[in-house]
Amino acid sequence: MIPDRFLLTDRVAVVTGAGRGIGAATALALAEAGADVVIAARTRDQLDEVAARVADAGRTAHVVATDLSDPANAAALADAAVTTFGRLDIVVNNVGGTLPRPLLETSAEFLEEAFRFNVAGAHALISAAAPTMLKSGGGSVVNISSVMGRVTGRGFLAYGTAKAALAHYTRLAAADLAPRVRVNAIAVGSVATSALDVVVRDPDLRERMEAATPLRRIGDPEDVAATIVYLTSPAGSYVTGKVLDVDGGLQAPNLELGLPDLT
């Protein structure tokens, strides 16, 4: 049966940035599909709330409150999964992000930090997880990239460049880890998370953003979480090295920052 191919019964997943937004929705979606989860972020209270929802879904969440801007802390999550659940099958690298900044205010250090947070941390966790996945017979990785990794807009130099790097990292890692570990990414568009609160709560800004989106709405975290279930389940078993766009059909930014021409 096709619906059975979307099940993740007794699989074990690590989800970073899982305290809220896409990460929280993903942890719950994976649990509803049958997986136990290691959930990691900075804020324990948020993680505990997600863990309670996972328990309500009949699965177990192991909470790791840690600073994932340090790649070593990200790598340690692989051991946490094995210690707690005895295996690791799925990694979702959701943590990331970089504040907008004009080019002339983007230092080399700021750019390096964007790469460290969005790419190096993902690499550290994947490198630590892959050997364990191979021992379990294989696995699946999903990296959360962004539409800004393929479209252009002022102010997104560091963020867009780092997310573009993560997208191509995904393709290269998929080649290295095939055939037993699949690696894919999602290029996310405008999704109603805390990062977009200022837009979601402003009716005028929200209307402008929705009007500039072909599907005429802002995405929900569950839109991304559902795609992650597909990619990590047997339903996606013939997919690797791909970047799936979950962006409402965007071909350009749907809200400009209004940065002026340089003079």
Rank of each mutant, 00 (worst) to 15 (best):
Arg20Leu: 06
Ala29Arg: 08
Gly248Arg: 06
Ala65Phe: 10
Ile39Arg: 01
Asn118Lys: 12
Asp36Val: 04
Leu68Cys: 07
Glu49Ser: 15
Ile90Phe: 04
Ala40Val: 15
Thr161Val: 12
Val200Glu: 01
Leu262Gly: 08
Ala41Tyr: 10
Ser140Asn: 01
Ala192Cys: 03
Ala61Val: 06
Asp202Glu: 11
Arg59Ile: 07
Arg154Trp: 05
Asp56His: 03
Ala75Phe: 14
Glu112His: 15
Phe115Tyr: 14
Tyr230Ile: 00
Gly248Ser: 05
Gln251Lys: 10
Ala27Pro: 10
Ala57Pro: 01
Ala178Glu: 09
Ala78Thr: 12
Val37Tyr: 08
Phe117Ile: 09
Lys163Cys: 06
Val243Trp: 01
Gly248Ala: 05
Val95Gly: 10
Arg101Tyr: 06
Glu109Gln: 15
Gln251Met: 12
Leu166Asn: 05
Phe117Ser: 05
Thr161Gln: 09
Leu125Lys: 06
Val141Leu: 04
Asp204Pro: 01
Ala128Asp: 11
Ala40Ile: 14
Gly139Lys: 00
Tyr238Leu: 01
Asn94Phe: 11
Ile2Met: 14
Gly21Ile: 08
Ser69Glu: 10
Ile126Arg: 11
Arg44Ser: 09
Arg20Trp: 02
Asn184Thr: 00
Thr9Asp: 04
Gln46Arg: 12
Val200Tyr: 02
Val63Cys: 09
Ala35Thr: 01
Asn73Phe: 14
Arg116Tyr: 05
Met209Asp: 04
Arg20Asp: 08
Gly96Val: 09
Asp202Leu: 11
Ile218Ala: 03
Pro179Phe: 07
Leu177Gln: 09
Leu134Trp: 13
Ile2Trp: 11
Ala81Asp: 13
Asp197Ser: 13
Gly21Arg: 08
Ala174Val: 02
Gly86Val: 07
Glu222Gly: 05
Val15Thr: 15
Asp197Ala: 14
Asn94Cys: 13
Leu104Trp: 15
Gly189Phe: 07
Tyr159Val: 12
Phe110Thr: 15
Asp197Pro: 03
Phe110Ala: 15
Ala65Ser: 14
Thr60Asp: 12
Arg42Ala: 13
Lys163Ala: 07
Ala164His: 04
Val246Pro: 02
Arg216Phe: 05
Asp10Thr: 09
Asp67Cys: 11
Leu231Ser: 02
Thr83Gly: 06
Leu88Met: 09
Gly149His: 07
Leu244Arg: 08
Asp176Leu: 13
Val119Asp: 11
Leu262Pro: 08
Val151Ile: 15
Arg44Tyr: 07
Ile2Asp: 13
Leu259Lys: 06
Arg116Met: 05
Gly137Gln: 02
Val200Pro: 01
Asp36Ile: 03
Ala235Pro: 00
Ala174Gln: 01
Val151Ser: 12
Arg42Val: 12
Pro179Gln: 06
Val229Phe: 01
Ile186Lys: 02
Val37Ala: 10
Asp48Arg: 02
Ala178His: 11
Asp197Phe: 05
Thr83Trp: 03
Leu250Lys: 04
Arg116Trp: 05
Ala185Arg: 03
Val198Leu: 05
Ser233Cys: 00
Gly58Ala: 03
Arg5Lys: 08
Thr83Met: 04
Gly160Phe: 15
Ala124Leu: 15
